[in-house]
Write a protein that binds this DNA or RNA. Structure first.
Length: 228
DNA sequence: AATCTGCCCAACCGCGTTGTC
DNA sequence: AGACAACGCGGTTGGGCAGAT
């Protein structure tokens, strides 16, 4: 029925990546670039599927990744973007150079979502607002439907598009809480794409390789310490 | 000190999309 | 046109960790 797994699981390693595997993947990509994810593990000497390699590179090893806590400004921007884009994490991430979709998604699910979770009182208020809106919409739409075909209306067979209501409610919350500005504008991302990676200065790249190397050797010391 | 509980996040899974033949 | 392969994305899982009991 469904699609076959991207690779047969036999003989392929899964789970957390070791520092040795990271080193192999980094070295390979730095020397050869990314041509075809499916062939990379074989050529780089890794017992992983291409998908796993891609994920590891994109979410963890990429040189332009910005790690660490999200600032309040970033959180506010994420909330704004989520209100307009929904769960399109890749789109949202494209507005944050150095942040990955996975990182933003995790942050949203573990932190921001809780921050936005309404209290019981707020829930009741929202529910009453929704029912009022629904009633109003039904009344006005009935009139409208008899007068016109209302083809572009948000009301389909008498039902309001709930997504619009939700967006509207979000907007309401944002406006009244004053926690973030409504004059937010989306900036063009200066995030370098993979195709542009060749423009990265050589000394910058070298600096990064050095830092990754030291990080990996530090990890190696830690891991061997644990093993001992 | 041992156990439990909840949180965080890296990694995986499966589906949709896109490209190629 | 459709079959297939590869990639990209969003949802979900599970292991490690910290704090609570």
């Amino acid at each position: 029925m469904g699609r076959q797994p991207c690779c047969d699981k036999v003989g392929l390693k899964r789970g957390p990546w070791s520092s040795e595997e990271d080193r192999k993947l980094i070295n390979f990509i730095l020397n050869n670039g990314i041509i075809c994810w499916r062939t990379i593990p074989k050529l780089a000497g890794l017992s992983r599927c291409g998908k796993s390699c891609r994920l590891r590179w994109v979410n963890y090893l990429r040189p332009d990744l910005k790690r660490g806590m999200f600032t309040e400004t970033e959180e506010d921007q994420i909330m704004q973007l989520h209100a307009s884009l929904g769960n399109r994490w890749a789109k949202i991430a494209s507005h944050f150079p150095g942040r990955t979709d996975n990182e933003i998604k995790n942050h949203w699910n573990t932190r921001i979502k809780k921050r936005l979770k309404p209290t019981e009182d707020e829930k009741k208020t929202q529910e009453s607002i929704v029912s009022t809106v629904l009633e109003d919409h039904e009344q006005t739409s009935e009139t409208a439907l008899t007068e016109t075909n209302a083809q572009n209306s948000n009301v389909i067979d008498g039902h309001v598009n709930l997504l619009d209501v939700e967006l509207w409610l979000n907007q309401e919350t944002i406006d009244t809480s004053g926690s973030y500005s409504t004059s937010f504008s989306l900036e063009d991302s200066s995030h370098p794409s993979m195709g542009e990676s060749s423009y990265i200065q050589e000394d910058y790249l070298q600096h990064w390789v050095d830092s990754v190397d030291s990080m990996l050797s530090w990890e190696a010391v830690c891991f061997s310490g644990f093993r001992d």
